[in-house]
Amino acid sequence: MAYSDKVIDHYDNPRNVGSLDKKASDVGTGLVGAPECGDVMKLQIQVEGDTIVDAKFKTFGCGSAIASSSLATEWIKGKSINDALLITNKEIVEELSLPPVKIHCSVLAEDAIKAAIADYKAKNVKV
C-alpha cells in the first residue's frame, strides 16, 4: 500500500508524542477507538483561559491513524477551544491525502479532539 509523503513524515517523526497529567484540572483527555478495531487514540490538551497551550497524543493503529492524530495535535496547539472544535476530518483527509479505506482514521482524530475538549469542559464546569 502506498502512503503519502505526509503520512510517512508523521509516522517517522510523530509530533507531540507523550502524555499530560490526566488528573490535572487544566488537562482534557480523549480516548477513542477500540483495540479490536485496530485503532485507539489518546489525545490530551492543556488549556489556559480558552487557549490550547499544549497537546499530546499516543496512538495504537495503522500509519494513517498515527499521522492523523499527530497532525491533529499540531493543528490544535495554540488554537482556542472553539476553533479546535471546527476542525473536521475532511481537512485531515485532504492534508494527508488519505485513501477512502483510511477515512475512519481521520474521523477518529476528529472524535479525539472533541472528546478531549468535552473532558476538559466537564472538569471545568463554571458554577
Binding site: S19, L31, A34, P35, E36, V40, I66, H104, D111
Partner: peptide, 24 residues
C-alpha cells in the same frame, strides 16, 4: 510501544479488557 496508549495503560496496571471502548 512508546507511541501506544495501550502499552502505557498496561504499564499502569489497567486491565485493557475491563475498559469500555468506544468502538467504531
Amino acid at each position: 510501544r512508546d507511541l501506544s496508549p495501550l502499552y502505557e495503560m498496561a504499564l499502569e496496571g489497567i486491565d485493557l479488557s475491563s475498559v469500555e471502548w468506544a468502538g467504531h
